[in-house]
């Protein structure tokens, strides 16, 4: 019995070691505190995400989304870019979630919509397949990178030092100008599309 527990503890220790080895290049010199923070944020992300997907009540689902965004902001903090973390809070929680909430309150029947019924099993299957997609896409890359040389992870091209607003602005307006402008075009198109979909030509009250 004791040997089994020892084996399990050993395995957990091994798992933590390999996590630390994987995180070491991303989080230099932070050690165990960063590891605890990392797992806390992972917990927030997974818990919030599951709440957002599984909640039967739209408002609780939105609360799950808020928790997920908090986790994402925490991950940005761990990656040593506090500016991005704060922007995540400002834009996604302060604006996006609040607007979603506004939309929920403007619609009727928030407590007996499609999401309150038991979901179709086929849809559940599809949802699990979709959830596996990141593992399929990113998993092999991460596995190969860490197998060959843990320091390889560093070589993912992050060419702008994003530790302050000034650096970020310079990067966006020099090196990454094209993607930056393309993203704003996407936003413009999305906005125009939303207006087009929502717009109903108004008849004058006389006719």
């Amino acid at each position: 019995m004791n040997s089994i527990i020892e084996q399990i503890l050993h395995n957990i220790g091994h798992l933590l070691d390999s996590c630390e080895a994987f995180l070491a290049p991303i989080l230099p010199g932070q050690g165990i505190a960063a590891l605890i923070a990392f797992f806390f944020y992972v917990l927030l992300l997974l818990g919030g995400g599951l709440t957002a997907v599984l909640a039967r009540n739209l408002v609780r689902a939105m609360l799950g989304l808020v928790i997920t965004f908090l986790g994402v902001a925490g991950m940005y903090l761990l990656l040593a870019s506090p500016f991005l973390a704060l922007m995540q809070l400002l834009i996604y929680i302060g604006a996006v979630c609040v607007l979603i909430f506004f939309a929920i309150m403007l619609t009727k029947n928030t407590t007996d919509g499609e999401e309150t019924r038991c979901p179709n099993p086929i849809n559940v299957l599809y949802a699990f397949l979709a959830a596996l997609a990141p593992i399929v896409v990113a998993g092999p890359i991460i596995y190969l990178q860490t197998q060959t040389d843990p320091l390889q992870v560093q070589k993912i091209p992050v060419h702008t030092p994003v530790d302050s607003g000034a650096n970020l602005g310079e990067g966006l307006l020099s090196m990454d100008l094209l993607p930056f402008e393309l993203i704003s075009i996407i936003l413009l198109v999305a906005m125009a599309g939303a207006v087009f979909l929502a717009f109903k030509p108004q008849r004058s009250p006389n006719s």
């Binding site: 704060l86 400002l90 609040v98 909430f101 607003g165």
Partner: peptide
């Protein structure tokens, strides 16, 4: 360093609590 952004970011949680 980004004191303003910090204040604006966490002030957004206040309206969430009202909601």
């Amino acid at each position: 360093n980004d004191g303003v952004v910090l204040i604006l970011a966490f002030a957004g949680l206040g309206v969430l609590s009202n909601l």
